[in-house]
Amino acid sequence: MNKDSNIGAEAARASLIAANGAKRQANLLLRPPVWLNVLISLLAALATTASAQASQSSFWTLIAIGAALSVIALALGWSHYLRVSGVKAKPLKGASKKTLTTVTLAFSSAFIVLLAIYLTKQGIWQSAYVAGAMIFLFSSFAFYKLPAGEWLTKDSGNE
């Protein structure tokens, strides 16, 4: 196989733009539609707020469990829809950039939830709602900008 390159900078730049464009298209295939993004993020926010309030009543516990199960069901539903549509997402593997991003997001979200639970128990009830709003923003931003665990750039040019 010929491994020699005899192409100019302009041709190489055009190839890079084409490759980045295709990569972006593949990432866009994994991005959920806006309505689903908003729905999952709202349910995640509800689960967060309800979890923080859960120690105060069984009603909030029920809402927290229901919202968390709904988030899981919607995420699995989206994954199934992707497979039926001919797209199979990459699983987390080793110490890749994607794994690091996903783990960081998961730990940050867990930290926000635990902090909200702690602060609510301390009597700062507003923290449950602040944490809910933060999780909503965090989740919707992650689904929009990091659908495949990699930052989705606006243009398809030089990355």
Partner: peptide, 22 residues
């Protein structure tokens, strides 16, 4: 040079972020 062909480069770029594509 095998990958460099326009369509082949795009096929590889499309397949890289995912596990499988139909």
């Amino acid at each position: 040079s095998l990958i460099h062909a326009h369509n082949r480069l795009q096929i590889c770029a499309l397949l890289h972020p995912v596990s499988e594509l139909e």
